[in-house]
Amino acid sequence: MTEGNGNNPGNVTSRAHSPVPNEDLGKSGKTAKLKIFRGDSEGGQEVEYEIPLVEGMVVLDAVLAIQAEQAGDLAVRWNCKAAHCGSCSAEINGRPKLLCKTRVEEYDGEEIHVHPMRAFPVIKDLVSDVSWNYEVSKAIKPFHSSEQAPFTMYEEDVERLYEPKKCIECFMCQDVCHVLRTHHKHAEFAGPRFFVRNQWLEMHPMDEEDRLGDLKEDNGLGFCNITKCCTEVCPVDIKITDNSIIPLKERVASEFYDPAKWLMRKIRGNGSSRNGN
């Protein structure tokens, strides 16, 4: 076995475990004040908390410090703390944000108001009921290919799919979209997140399903009037409007409003005239 043994050359002890002593780490001497919504589906109000400001602190750090030291039952969702999982979405000063990606220092001098996402029913404090999104997701036709993997696909065939595939399901685009937020069209409109999903499905070179009819009818693609608010809040920089929604709208238009295709459909009795690309 040619394995380095990592033998310990000198003065290593089992005790000095951490690089820097824990306490007082990065303490700035300053404090941060946050006004956090406390309440549930019946209503609630903002409560102000003050905590020591630590260098580089994100709003989630602040909320968790408040939870550990001042308000044990303060409800918030989080998992990765690194903007990878999309759990910690909430609204800071009225804008959807990932709490784990938003620095407290960004609001230097401004008040910080933290509220749950508004396009969904509130459960408690910063936690809202996003289960509707999973119902929408369930209704979308999954990937299907009759060919047997491994597939031969070249980088240039799939390059543009990496972008929609980055989605971390934070649902902040759903939160900001006026069709849901203001007009509450949850029953008729899938929302930007699911146009993103439909985009990669429709553009995947091996997929054989047809979702254009569903996009037009069940997913309410037509409700979107291209305001681009969703794109602005996406934490992983998916150009939702330009790269997902507009191409899908074009496909739907050519599928359903192109007279030649319309005639084909009449004759063949279905809409599956497109191929993967």
Binding site: P142, F143, S145, Q148, A149, P150, F151, T152, M153, Y154, E155, D157, V158, L161, Y162, K165, W200, L201, H204, D207
Partner: peptide, 14 residues
């Protein structure tokens, strides 16, 4: 991959 996962590709498309 059969279920829709997408991995980075080699020049041979694998």
């Amino acid at each position: 991959e059969q279920w829709g996962a997408l991995f980075n590709r080699t020049p041979e498309g694998k």
